[in-house]
Amino acid sequence: MLKNPIFSAYSLLLLGSAAFAQWTGFGLNPATPIKDVPKSVRENPGVYRSHYAFLPRWFGGK
């Protein structure tokens, strides 16, 4: 590895970054963070509406 210091540094950076991302569970988030969801949602789920609830729907088959 000492004979290829640049390649080894490159590999270390790649693997180190991947391992860090892996360990912390880092990833592209498909979700939207939300804050201050009212406590009453547990009693009345309809007081909160998802950001995704208003999109047009159509899923056809072949």
Partner: peptide, 24 residues
């Protein structure tokens, strides 16, 4: 088909994640 509008909500802080998933 079905669409699931989901929110994973922290019961203590009220913070969470809103997401959707289609299944067909």
């Amino acid at each position: 088909w079905a669409v699931f509008n989901l929110a994973l909500i922290n019961d203590e802080t009220g913070q969470g994640y809103d997401f959707g998933q289609d299944v067909s």
